[in-house]
Amino acid sequence: MSERPLLAVRGLTKRYGERTGCVDVGFDLWPGEVIGVVGESGSGKTTILHCLSGRTAATAGSATFVQRDGTVVDLLRMPEAARRRLARTDWAMVQQNPRDGLRMSVTAGANVGEPLMALGARHYGEIRGRALDWLGQVEIPLDRIDDLPATFSGGMQQRLQIARSLVTRPRMVFMDEPTGGLDVSVQARLLDLLRGLVADLGLAAIVVTHDLAVTRLLAHRLLVMRGGEIVESGLTDQILDDPQHPYSQLLVSSVLPP
């Protein structure tokens, strides 16, 4: 087990003019650990993901990340070229809308194979083999490998996106409402799948969601966000069973019993 966290975020702040995205956010993410970030819309949870993934520039703060070779980089200050390269090899993003994370005009097999090809894979048979393997892992019928994603249901598209993002064995995954937009039974299956994959692959993950049930199943620790700030953090079970901050209490109590 490593001595230092995989990702250490300190003082992460994003302002849009006078509006605040997030303020002074700090946390550590250890290998194999899943952190849930919860709050209502506008709480700043998605802003954190956008800053860490480079989609938007942070106003202040640091996010030090330990690369595979042990060297440390600050994600918020990396040049774009280096960050895009790291994004291909070390981390992955699962978008809320799978259409945003897939190439809709190419087949399922090509979607899963592309990250491998981007890293230099040059054996068609092997690429296709790994794609088949991953389709199996995310429970997509293997005979769909040559179909276009547009012919898939929402849940299947999401599973395809997950396969595409994990095929290069990243060490860290960002997930933005991974089950949003799916109906309840489909959600449950997907969460089960995610939990299994995260455990098998030893992934570190940051899961942004407004749905506490998702965090109960996936996350080891929780950050509760409100108005751009972390109001409470701790073990998932502790916070869900015994929330301390009044806002956390409000959140937890407003969840309908299953």
Partner: peptide, 11 residues
């Protein structure tokens, strides 16, 4: 970022 060129061949 040339992964897409081999995607074309793959397809």
């Amino acid at each position: 970022e040339y992964g897409v060129m081999h995607v074309r061949l793959y397809e």
